[in-house]
Amino acid sequence: MKSSNSQNNSKIFPKVFKDATSALFDFKSEMTLMSGGFGLCGIAENCIDALTQMDVNNLTVISNNIGNSGRGLVKILVQDKIKKAFCSYVGGNPDLEVRMLNKKIEVELVPQGTFSERIRAAGMGIRAFYTPTGYGTLIAEGKEVKLFDRPCILETALHADFAIIKAQKGDTFGNLWFKETARNFSPLMAMAAKITVVEVEELVDVGEIAPEDIHLPGIFVQRIFKGSQYKNEIEFLITED
């Protein structure tokens, strides 16, 4: 209920917000949250920090890694704000692995391609799809199997109340440009959530990003703000010299 109200509001409010806290003003307990980024690359640092200060709990979080190495979403994981997580990879996130093995959090592991496609499907209005990925494995348990050229399992779309994503550059309509491999799941999540909150390093006027350079059209973005104090952490720094 709350979230559908906010969605209507977002169409009349201007999209540009002051900061993460103001852009997440109506984010509540029990909601489903998508969070962009691959490991720590391209995560919404300001929004995650704001969530650590908010009185929200019993969240369902959809994110590839749920943070890593004590950073990113691990900050709210260790505050026990997450009830259920959807992710594809736990390696590198000991805080999540321990909670998972001790059954302190419910985790649904989703193969990464199926994960991204379930999110994309939600944004595209596709209810479900058949894929060979995962056939004959634990993740196929309880899922419908259908034989095409080979056996496939039925996977359903993944929706969210909110998505928090980061882009390098965005304009006041919400058109986004991502840097290098920081794009990953973010445009898909922006399409799948009712309210997408975007933080950018550079906030520009409409027209400043050439139309053919826009990676995600602003129609998928409800709120945008210029973030600050980015750490842009590197997990494994390897150079040739």
Partner: peptide
Amino acid sequence: SPTLINAGKETIAIKAGASFFDSSLSF
């Protein structure tokens, strides 16, 4: 660059002809 990594989250370089894309296109 912190935004140029591989699936192991290690920093990488790219060659001429390289391209970037989202996870759905990648898979």
